[in-house]
Nucleic acid binder design. Structure first.
Lengths: 364, 364
DNA sequence: AAACCTATCGGGAAGGTTCTCGAAACGGGT
DNA sequence: ACCCGTTTCGAGAACCTTCCCGATAGGTTT
């Protein structure tokens, strides 16, 4: 069996036998080692090889060893394409994020990747760049690629969810994280945005700020609505009036955040403090205030959301609401893996924590 | 032809005909619309359908329309797995970066993705986390996934390149960018590190700094060696002595950068200025200096490399050498696409530009 | 009328794997 | 010597597509 003449094609890493049959079969033009090669050399069937490699039970121990040895010697790698075609499983997870310039989504991706690669899945990442059309196109592309599941954080402009309905119709599981979809029954990973925002605004009130503005996100996003609600309720709890003119919505792009910051500081009666929906936009406020010589925190208090690393090193350092970013990735991936086993609805809510820094501390 | 009774399985989005043959064939358990479905319903062969869909020529115009119409009606999507299996092309490009917490690599990825997705390729991204073992494992995983090509930036610890030799042996094209592999004949996208570093150090000298240290990268990396050489030559040109004790190497991790920064500032006779191999490490120096009350730029000049957005907003703002990050991604992808057509050696060198900011300006 | 040409289409293999079903082989019991 | 249960293995279909090679039909030419 094992003693046959084996040849090795150096240029392309291909092993083959000559005189196996009486036909001196020459090496095929392009050779990837397949289970058929192993079977031929061992004079057995491909079924047997497949079973041995797969660790199936009813295989003679000697035969299995022969196969395993030869497979290692030939450096055999199973072809995932053939497998995927047969099993309708690519072992690829699609991930869709709005952007990854800042630290937030990259970190989530890393968390997800850690979990998924341990489970034998690879990641295909797309970014919608806050464009609804791109998001739809990306979902389509992901579906075309036959990914096994989807990890999604939607854009700030996504109002129509038909593209995700298509996904669910094809029985491809979807887990939303951070920016979730409220009208679809899918598992989600979110944080307690409401209480995070509430704490942040209450903290500002405690520091003596009264006219507190909110640089909000697009109200179609749940995170934006919840943070807004936290803001509103905190004001109300402390008997402060809510001034509509102090609420300004932005679409989560950098330029737009800059515009909104200017709008707020240009107000005839500018706010004493600003609670921003995320750190990048809070940062825009902070930078503009610095440029104009507005004293932070004395004349303007600022609190952001998410604890971007920049917030700690900017001067004055930015108060913010920390959220477990890496863990969001992990949990989302974990949830998706469970969906792949058995679909069931589940929402994970992670905790936030207020980090008070210099941008909002003007007492004790 | 078209008038046959068609049924539609709502739960799984499957169209089928009954009474097509005399056997009332019921819908298969799991149904994805295939070209066979189209062929069956039209009473033609799958070859014809395939050709019509592929835009082949010798097909009757009427037939083609029928096929195209039905394909659209059934929402047919070609199965890329079957195609990939047959053509040995997955249309997936593997990308391997050391990390993507900072702005640098994410931006490169975005640039590459823009080019690749336009060309019909998808991206599979891995990060080695500055670990050689992870890099090797990732390359293997990418190869197992049968990617069509590789876009790689190596770790700071990669001395052995056998894993990339394996890739080339399998005739999978590789393009290195930023952190390239010197001993392999592959296309690369780099920047003029040498002159960038030279300018940076010369600028420090012009500002009157004399004892200039270099927080270097691992010397096995070409970028680190070139930047080091620029540093050395700039000193020499201006007749400054080179003090070995002022050169300290770090492995590009954050913790290690912090250690090295401390080491430099703890020196019995500390440097007057520090040129760092990249912005994140320059930032560590800056932060430590601030913490210790060392005046920047008066008592310590600092210049980084890469122009991370944080550098512009930190206080004092960080002088740095700008490089066209997005373009590195674009060009790498472009080069890889060319490799896929026809392998040929090419190295693209992009320009850098010194940006002088507050951390190094103490004159004029 | 026979031969030929062109336009259009079908059959079947290939790509690499897994899985079902069934078939040998072998040992032991009667 | 026959039957039966196990153990071990092989044949072939299926997954979905593309492509090569022929085949058929109709019309055209001689």
């Amino acid at each position: 069996m094992r003693g046959k003449q084996r040849y090795y094609c150096k240029s392309c890493d291909y092993h083959f036998t000559i005189g196996d049959e009486n036909t001196p079969q020459e090496p095929k033009r392009h050779h990837e080692v397949t289970i058929m090669d192993i079977a031929r050399q061992l004079g057995i069937s491909k079924s047997t090889v497949s079973r041995a490699l797969r660790g199936h039970t009813d295989i003679h121990e000697g035969t299995r060893q022969m196969i395993l040895d030869l497979a290692k010697e030939l450096d055999y790698e199973p072809n995932p394409l053939a497998n995927a075609l047969l099993k309708r499983r690519t072992n690829i997870i699609g991930m869709l994020v709005p952007e990854f310039r800042h630290y937030f989504f990259p970190t989530i991706i890393m968390g997800a990747q850690a979990v998924l690669s341990k489970a034998g899945y690879n990641l295909m990442i797309f970014q919608s760049d806050e464009s609804y059309e791109t998001e739809v196109a990306n979902v389509k592309a992901l579906l075309r690629s036959r990914v096994d599941g989807l990890l999604v954080s939607i854009t700030g402009k996504t109002e129509n969810f038909d593209h995700f309905r298509t996904v669910l119709q094809k029985e491809v599981p979807v887990v939303f994280f951070n920016r979730v979809c409220p009208e679809l029954d899918t598992p989600q990973v979110i944080i307690d945005d409401y209480s995070g925002a509430f704490q942040a605004v209450e903290h500002l009130i405690e520091q003596g700020y009264r006219r507190i503005a909110h640089l909000a996100g697009p109200s179609i996003l749940q995170i934006a609505r919840l943070r807004m609600q936290g803001y509103v309720d905190a004001l109300q709890k402390h008997g402060l009036p809510m001034d509509e003119s102090l609420i300004v919505y932005h679409d989560l792009t950098e330029e737009n955040a800059r515009l909104c910051a200017r709008h707020l500081l240009d107000l005839p009666q500018p706010p004493e403090a600003i609670f921003a929906v995320n750190d990048p936009s809070a940062l825009e406020v902070l930078l503009l205030a610095k440029k104009r010589g507005i004293k932070v925190p004395q004349d303007l208090g600022i609190v952001g959301f998410s604890n971007d690393p920049v917030s700690a090193i900017i001067e004055p350092s930015l108060s913010t609401v920390e959220q477990p970013v890496w863990e969001i990735g992990e949990q989302s991936a974990q949830l998706l893996l469970e969906q792949l086993e058995q679909p069931r609805l589940e929402t994970k809510v992670l905790k936030t924590r207020l980090i008070v820094r210099d941008s909002s501390r003007r007492r004790g």
